[in-house]
Structures are given as structure tokens and as C-alpha cells.
Amino acid sequence: EEAIQNFKALLSDMVRSSDVSWSDTRRTLRKDHRWESGSLLEREEKEKLFNEHIEALTK
């Protein structure tokens, strides 16, 4: 649960536009030290959280 919250915070800070792809964003996020705290999450979970974040940005 904490890993999810940390990853959501990372997305909020780093992803402000809804027209970015997961693969491009992932490359950028990996450069942030907080990426490692999400290592407990599966890749699919990270992508799902990313997609939810993008959906929220479009509303």
C-alpha cells in the first residue's frame, strides 16, 4: 500500500500531461530516486496506476 502511494505521488509530480505514453514516461520516471520505492510493485500494477493517473488528468 505504501509503495502504491509513493508511486502515485511520483506520477503526480512528474506526469502533468495526458498525451504521454507509458514507455516514454517510464524512462523519465526511472531517473527519479523514488522509482526504486516502487520496486515492490509489479510492472503491470505500475502501468495500471499510470493509466488511472492519465484518466484523471483528462477529466
Rank of each mutant, 00 (worst) to 15 (best):
Glu1Thr: 08
Glu1Val: 06
Glu1Ala: 03
Glu1Lys: 10
Glu2Asn: 03
Glu2Ile: 09
Ala3Val: 08
Ala3Gln: 11
Ala3Pro: 03
Ala3Leu: 06
Ile4Gly: 05
Ile4Val: 10
Ile4Lys: 12
Ile4Ala: 07
Ile4His: 13
Gln5Phe: 10
Gln5Glu: 11
Asn6Cys: 06
Asn6Met: 07
Asn6Lys: 13
Phe7Ser: 05
Phe7Trp: 03
Phe7Ala: 05
Lys8His: 03
Lys8Leu: 01
Lys8Asn: 00
Lys8Phe: 01
Ala9Asp: 09
Ala9Thr: 08
Ala9Ser: 13
Ala9His: 11
Leu10Gly: 05
Leu10Gln: 04
Leu10Thr: 05
Leu11Trp: 00
Leu11Asp: 03
Leu11Ser: 06
Ser12Glu: 14
Ser12Tyr: 05
Ser12Asp: 11
Ser12Ala: 14
Ser12Gly: 09
Asp13Ala: 05
Met14Gln: 11
Met14Asn: 10
Met14Lys: 13
Met14Thr: 11
Val15Glu: 02
Val15Phe: 00
Val15Leu: 00
Val15Cys: 03
Arg16Thr: 15
Arg16Ala: 09
Ser18Gln: 10
Ser18Ile: 10
Ser18Asn: 08
Asp19Thr: 09
Val20Thr: 11
Val20Arg: 07
Val20Glu: 08
Val20Gly: 06
Ser21Tyr: 00
Trp22Cys: 02
Trp22Phe: 07
Ser23Asn: 13
Ser23Ile: 10
Ser23Tyr: 08
Ser23Glu: 15
Ser23Ala: 12
Asp24Pro: 01
Asp24Lys: 05
Asp24Ile: 01
Asp24Arg: 02
Thr25Gly: 05
Thr25Ile: 15
Thr25Asp: 01
Thr25His: 01
Thr25Tyr: 10
Thr25Asn: 01
Arg26Trp: 15
Arg26His: 11
Arg26Tyr: 14
Arg26Val: 15
Arg27Ser: 12
Arg27Asp: 14
Thr28His: 12
Thr28Lys: 14
Thr28Phe: 10
Leu29Gln: 02
Arg30Phe: 04
Arg30Gln: 15
Arg30Ile: 07
Lys31Cys: 10
Asp32Val: 01
Asp32Pro: 00
Asp32Leu: 05
Asp32Lys: 05
His33Asn: 11
His33Met: 15
His33Gln: 15
Arg34Ile: 02
Arg34Phe: 00
Arg34Pro: 00
Trp35Thr: 06
Trp35Ile: 04
Ser37Val: 10
Ser37Arg: 07
Ser37Tyr: 10
Gly38Trp: 05
Gly38Glu: 11
Gly38Asn: 13
Gly38Leu: 13
Ser39Gly: 14
Ser39Leu: 11
Ser39Lys: 14
Leu40Val: 14
Leu40His: 12
Leu40Ala: 14
Leu41Phe: 00
Leu41Met: 06
Leu41Trp: 02
Glu42Cys: 15
Glu42Lys: 15
Glu42Pro: 15
Glu42Asn: 15
Glu42His: 14
Glu42Asp: 15
Glu42Trp: 02
Arg43Gln: 15
Arg43Val: 15
Arg43Asp: 15
Arg43Lys: 15
Glu44Met: 07
Glu44Ser: 14
Glu44Cys: 09
Glu47Ala: 05
Glu47Tyr: 01
Glu47Leu: 06
Glu47Trp: 06
Lys48Thr: 08
Lys48Phe: 04
Lys48Gln: 11
Lys48Tyr: 04
Lys48Asn: 07
Leu49Thr: 03
Leu49Tyr: 04
Leu49Ile: 09
Phe50Tyr: 06
Phe50Trp: 02
Phe50Leu: 00
Phe50Pro: 04
Asn51Leu: 08
Asn51Glu: 08
Asn51Thr: 07
Glu52Cys: 06
Glu52Tyr: 04
Glu52Gly: 04
Glu52Asp: 11
Glu52Ala: 09
Glu52Lys: 05
Glu52Trp: 00
His53Pro: 06
His53Ile: 00
His53Val: 00
Ile54Met: 09
Glu55Lys: 11
Glu55Gln: 13
Glu55Ala: 12
Ala56Ile: 09
Ala56Pro: 04
Leu57Lys: 04
Leu57Met: 13
Thr58His: 09
Thr58Ser: 13
Thr58Phe: 04
Lys59Pro: 12
Lys59Gln: 12
